[in-house]
Design a protein around this nucleic acid. Structure first.
Ligand SMILES: [Mn+2]
Ligand SMILES: [Mn+2]
Ligand SMILES: [Zn+2]
Ligand SMILES: [Zn+2]
Lengths: 140, 140
DNA sequence: AATGCAACTGATAATCATTCTCATTTAAAG
DNA sequence: CTTTAAATGAGAATGATTATCAGTTGCATT
């Protein structure tokens, strides 16, 4: 059963190898935003012979092919996730590090309007909200 | 004549040295978003004895004191600018690399609303628009 | 003005994520 | 089953940033 990501890679004409299939599967099965180190650990369980360099090479390949998205949440290493049908942005819980996904059509539209007004066409954007949980009334 | 940034550093209680004053002045006189290498080059003109390590240390100090802002526009190195009265976000011209500043109150409000709806208090955010210039009608 | 000490500085080594190198292996085509 | 270009794995190299440490400086106190 090829993973959804593997299928998308095939559509893009990428040559698929055993390693790439493993990495694609791990990415497809991840519902978080793993960095390369974490992807490496996860792939090791399926195939302990895959090297770190291959993981780096493969995420770069996948990202350039547009089948996965690369994020930088400010901690110095890149994080990845499978490209979904619908775009979303991220809210980072500064207390726990958890990443919450959200979408807001109004913000998306306004971004296009801002770019247009400045004489530009919006190609891509990065929107991250760094937040702290609202303390429910209790002690304090 | 102390630079505006030097004054703000003093207000924050930071010990000011000759090197820090020079770096503060360079930052205050910059109207772009220089990285550390560029700041180093600019400080060299005023004081060729300032070391790269001091520039790194000082921008970190200033950033932690909240008197300058640190940005990451995706090219792997941090960029800095003096903190202004009013917040603004950035549009990056992908063709030339030029950084254009903009403000949009509606987007700002919506961000707070998104965070609130998810049970969070918005502390900070990063919004960057990656764009290409709209080709004026001519050849093509 | 001299003293003392904590903070600062500069040169350089260390770190960390990522990319490169290269010898070896693999896979797709004929 | 060959051919051959591309892919892989181990480790070296890179580039930005931080840490280390010996020497210097700012300044409050004599
Ligand atoms: Mn996501
Ligand atoms: Mn700016
Ligand atoms: Zn978005
Ligand atoms: Zn903003």
């Amino acid at each position: 059963m090829p993973s959804r990501l593997e299928q998308r890679c095939a559509e893009k004409g990428l040559k698929m190898t055993s390693q790439r299939r493993t990495i694609a599967r791990v990415l497809s099965e991840s519902d978080d935003h793993p960095d390369v180190e974490l992807l490496y650990q996860r792939t090791q369980k399926a195939d302990p012979k895959i090297g770190m360099a291959t993981v780096y090479r493969t995420v770069r390949l996948f990202e350039e092919a547009g089948v996965i998205d690369k994020h930088d949440f400010g901690d110095g290493r890149a994080r990845y996730e499978e490209t979904g049908e619908d775009h979303h942005d991220h809210l980072i819980d500064m207390k726990t590090g958890r990443v919450i996904e959200f979408t807001n059509e109004d913000i998306e539209k306004l971004q296009h309007m801002v770019a247009e007004k400045l004489g530009y066409e919006l190609i891509g954007h990065r929107l991250e909200l760094y937040c702290l949980p609202i303390r429910k009334k209790s002690g304090e």
